[in-house]
Write a protein that binds this DNA or RNA. Structure first.
Lengths: 187, 187
DNA sequence: CGCTACATGTAAGGTGTTACATGATTCC
DNA sequence: GGAATCATGTAACACCTTACATGTAGCG
C-alpha cells in the first residue's frame, strides 16, 4: 500500500479500458490523460506491484520471451468503482503564470506580455491536440462504450483552451497601455 | 533555505504589495491568490524566518506588546524580481473530476451528472467572487500601481469560470442521452 | 469569564520527483 | 553492430500536509 489512491485510480482506470504493459500505461497516461492528469511515474511500477498483490490486476502472457501485459480483474473493477465514487480530492492550484502576472508590477509589462503570449500558444496547441483526439476516437471502434465519456473531457479541454485564447487577446491589448516599472518604484 | 523558491516568491510578492503579519499573509494568500495559488502554510513561518535571515524581509514594530509586521527590503525586491523572471515551473495537473468523467463508463451517468453540477456551482461561485474582487480593488486606492496587473488575473478567473459553465451545460445535456452502466458490462 | 480571532511556530509522516540502473528487442 | 525504443524497476531526496503546541487580544 505504498501507492496512493489517486495513482491506483488512474492505473485501474486505464486498465479498465484495455490491458497493456507498464510502459504503454505510462505513455497512455502521459498522452491521453495528460491534459488534466499527471502521474508520478516513479510510483507507477510500485503501484502495479501493489495492485497485483491485492489481486486487482493480473499479468498476462509472462514466462515466455514476450513481455507481460497487465489486465484488470473483477476485484479491480469493483475497487475502481469505489475509488471513482469517492469525491475528488481538490488539489492545490499552482499557476506560476498567474502568480507572475499578479505581481506584474515588479516584473514589468514586457515580461508579462511574453508570459501571456506563451500561454496563448500553448492553448492553441491544446486546441489542435483536442481536435486530433476527436479524430482518433472515431477510429477506435473497440472503445465505443468509453468514447462518449472521453469526449466530455475533450470538450472541456476545448472550452478551456478557447477561454485562454480569448483572455490572452484581451490581456495583450490591456498590457499595451501599461507603463514600464521604474527600478526604484516600490514602497 | 528549507523553503522552496515557489513559496518564497509568493511571500515576497505579497509583502511587495504591503507589509503585514504572518497571520495576515496567510489570509491574503488564501483569499486573494486562492483562485490560482495555494501555499503550504506549514512552510510559511519557516519561509519568513529564512527570508529574514537572508535580509530579504524585516520585522517592524516588534519588542513592545504589539505584534510584528513583516516588510520586504530592497534586497527582497531584487530577489523577487529574479524569481519572477524565471520561467514558471509547470505543475502536474490533477483534475479529479476529469479523471472520473474519463472513466465515467464505470461510474455511470448519474454520478457524472452530479460531478458536473458541482463543478458548475463552483464556477458560478468563482464568477461571483471575481465580481466582488473587482469591486474591492476599486476601493483600494493605495494599490493603484498593482491593480492593473491584479485585474488581469481576475479576468482570467472570469473567463475560466464562464468556460466551465458553458461546458457544464453542454455536458449535462449530453449526459441525458447516455444509458446507465450495467454491473457486468466490462471487457 | 469564556469565546473567538489573532499570532507564531514545530515536527512527524506521507507523497511525489528525479535521476539512475538494467536489460531486451527492433530497425537500419 | 549501434541506436532507438521498449520494458521494468529503485532509491535518494525534495516537498507538502496535518495535527499539534502555545500564547495574546478583544469582545460580549
Amino acid at each position: 500500500m505504498a501507492s496512493s489512491d489517486q495513482t491506483q485510480t488512474a492505473v485501474l482506470g486505464a486498465l479498465s479500458i484495455m490491458p497493456m504493459t507498464g510502459y504503454a500505461l505510462r505513455e497512455q497516461i502521459r498522452d491521453t490523460l495528460g491534459h488534466f492528469w499527471g502521474e508520478s511515474f516513479g510510483q507507477l511500477y510500485p503501484a502495479l506491484t501493489d495492485l497485483e498483490r491485492a489481486g486487482m490486476v493480473e499479468r498476462e502472457g509472462a514466462g515466455e520471451g514476450r513481455s507481460s501485459r497487465f489486465a484488470i480483474t473483477n476485484a479491480g473493477v469493483t475497487r475502481l468503482r469505489e475509488l471513482l465514487a469517492e469525491p475528488p480530492q481538490p488539489t492545490r492550484p499552482r499557476n506560476g503564470m498567474m502568480l507572475r502576472l499578479f505581481f506584474g508590477r515588479q516584473l514589468g509589462p514586457e515580461a508579462c506580455r511574453r508570459l501571456v503570449l506563451d500561454a496563448r500558444e500553448q492553448a492553441e496547441a491544446q486546441l489542435a491536440a483536442m481536435k486530433a483526439a476527436r479524430n482518433d476516437l472515431q477510429q477506435e471502434h473497440h472503445l465505443t462504450q468509453d468514447v462518449p465519456y472521453i469526449l466530455l473531457t475533450v470538450s472541456a479541454g476545448e472550452h478551456g483552451a478557447r477561454a485562454t485564447i480569448a483572455w490572452a487577446d484581451e490581456t495583450l491589448a490591456a498590457l499595451e497601455s501599461l507603463p514600464p516599472t521604474s527600478t526604484k518604484d516600490f514602497s
